[in-house]
Amino acid sequence: MILVLGQCSDQVIGAFMHHCVKHSVDFAFVDLNQLGKSIDMDELYWFFPGQSPVSHSDITGVYNRFLDWPKQNKYQMDRLLSLFDWLDHRYENVINRPKDTMSNLSKPYQLDIASQFFSWSIPKTNIIMNTQIKIKSPFICKSISSERSIVNQVYRQEEKAFYEPALLQAYIPGLNIRVHACDDVIVAVGIQSDAVDYRYSRFENDIFMYHLPGQVEKDILALNRTLGLRFSGVDLIYHNKKYYFLEANPSPGYAYFESQLSRPYISEALVSSLSRSIH
């Protein structure tokens, strides 16, 4: 049985569970807002309302999409911390362990690691704080951490003030590529969009299967191994016959991309990885 962890507001989890239902894959969904309330766990079992207890030993894999700390009392906090312990140390098969997702807490830290691979380049990236600058070539500005920022403005000639640390990165026009890598399975899509940040396009994006060069695929798998990630969503840009690496998302919102494809390749890969024992 696959354990699915997340919150009801997360549509990615919905798409994954829908896939499981369609293909008769056993799963149990832990709504983290209910942990310590209607859902509970102890050293041996999970307890769901109206269900027989589910033994930890019956769980073949855990799909972890811990979104945010729910409001909690002390007991619920204890349960959450206990869950983190299971995810980081006790379950054998977790996509992804919380401790491995933390590289995304710092984009430059991750970029430094990605710069060790040669099939892509890293866009010129500056970290700036407490400084007023005048921009002279096209740049985009984004959050330095994993906190979401909308990157829809290209700065060309403006003055800009930086207070908290943020990234000023060379604007690379070109084709956005999202690569989902789950263990050894790679699914790449191209995204043709009118917006700089395709997530916030006012119009529908065109999404199509993209064939990556073999070396880029190898490097993505090697990067995942370096970061400890078994599933990631890597953002690349293809421009002037070169690939540029932007970031590797450790909990990618893959469902949007998959909904445009002919097959649920990524859900299939996730189910395959989470259904097998990895002893």
Partner: peptide, 14 residues
């Protein structure tokens, strides 16, 4: 506040 803290942690980690 979380964004602000994470911005500093993100910088420091690098």
């Amino acid at each position: 506040q979380r964004y602000y803290l994470h911005s500093w942690l993100g910088f420091l980690m690098w």
